[in-house]
Structures are given as C-alpha cells and as structure tokens.
Nucleic acid binder design. Sequence first.
DNA 1: ATGGCAGCGTCACGCTGA
Length: 292
Amino acid sequence: MLRVFNSVETSVQIASWNVNSVRTRLDQVLEWLEQEQPDLLCLQETKVDDPLFPVEAFTKAGWHANVHGQKSYNGVALISRTPLNDVRCGLIGELPDDADAKRLGEQKRVISGLLDGVRVLNLYVPNGSNLKSDKYTYKLNWLACLKRYLEAPRQRDEPLCMVGDFNIAPEARDIHDPERLTGGIMATDAERAALKDVLGEQLQDIFRLFEPDAGHWTWWDYRTGAWARDRGWRIDHIYLSEELSGLARSCRIHKQIRGNEQPSDHAPISVDLNWPPDDDDGWDDPDPLDLG
DNA sequence: ATGGCAGCGTCACGCTGA
C-alpha cells in the first residue's frame, strides 16, 4: 500500500518475478511478499490454468490476485495489496480483426492493470529457443505485435510501467560472457532491435538509470553451476514512460532470492516510485540519482 | 560442439525453458 514518508511524499513499489511455477514456489512468493510489502508483484511463468491457481493462499495473506494462465507453460498474474482497475489480458482487444495478434494471444503472456492511474503491463516475452527455430520467428513477431499494441492511442495516454521477463539481454554489459554469447538466443541483433523498436523514445530501462556497470543479473541457469559461479544474464526489466522515469527513487534486483532452497532460476526486480507526483509543495523534486 | 537442471504431465520419459 502507499507509504507516506511525510505529509507530501508518497511512494509506490512495483515488482516483477519469473517464478517458474507459482505452485512450486508458493511459499517463497508469500514469504517474499510479506518481507518486501510491494504494492504490486507481477508474476511470470505461473504454469497453471486459472482454476488451479492458488488464489486463496494469496487472499488469506491479504493480497488480490488477477490471473491469466495456461496449463504447463507460460502464464502471468498480478498480485496487489489493493484491487486493480481495468485489468486486461493479452494483446488482443486493441487490434481488431487481427489474425496475427489473435494467434500470438493463444499463449498467455500478457496481463495489465491500473494501479493509482499507472498502467502496469506484465509481460512474459517468448524465449525463442534457437535462431533456426519457428519459436525464434514467433518471438520477433510477438515483439512487433507488442510495439503496435503500445502505439494504440489508448495505451499512449496512460503513464506506463512495463515489466517482466523479456528474454533479451539489451547490451553486452547484461551478459556474464558477452564474447561467447553475443549473437546467440537472447543476444542477437534482431532481438535487440525489436526490443528497441518496442521502447521507442519514451520508455526507459529504469535499472540503468541507477546502475551503469556490468555484473548485475536477474537470471542464472539451473545448469553448469551458473549461480555458484555468478554467471547470469539481465533479462528481466522494468521500463517506465517519460512522466514516470523522473520519479523513480531506486531499482533493485533481489539477488539473494536466487540462493533460496529450490529456487526459481530468476530473481525478483523492483522499482520504487514517487507516485502520485507531488507538484504543489513548493520544493524541487530531488534528483533520483542522488538517492541511490 | 554438447549437455547440464527443473517443472509439467502423467507414472518413464519427452517436451520446454533460457
């Protein structure tokens, strides 16, 4: 819920976590919510059909759950302290009679809702498998569809917080071994260009506003002892539209969660925003870079 | 160059993820 720091300053925390099965990770998710108390947690890879989603466990703990899932694969959810407004599932609905969008919507990868007037868009971008796979083409098509979705007038008018598992490392500094891995899946020029196209001039990778260095990862492969060797990728991101990016106080990767017993292969990420903006207190807003 | 680990569905192992 909104935390009041003084009479005029409020803050909202939005988080994202690919949990790799919400049922297997349920206790860890509830524990993290209890500790961190975000206003909204966006989940990806819930891997469960809606009737089997453990809604009650969240309700009992005082959370609201909006779900958009499927059996075994994909699946996204919004877990919030207060009810969200105008929850929408999928990219379709904004692109009338678009067969391509409908086909891409068969996989449950998108859910969004309004939190205090901010459109929070929770994404699970396709992985793409390998460069020769049909899934790779699907990934690029999916990103092109997302771009058109964001360009629709209704989307452009709302302050946007776009979060999730993007399955793309935007730059060399987002991979533990860029020399070896650049050009492979999650690090091709085509994927990076498609993501840049989605972002346009308006959406900022908010983690990079606070941390320019390499060595900050959100995903560590289960195999090859990647976690023990800290060989990771930064593929989970938070993007903010122009009116929000100046209000970010911090952006954190909750790395220690990857060290849990039976962990997800992803760590949560979160952003703290001064929201709603305070514009009538007679003081200049502090530079968020000075607060890191 | 390849596989490795984990979860799912369904009960021995193939599919998928990243």
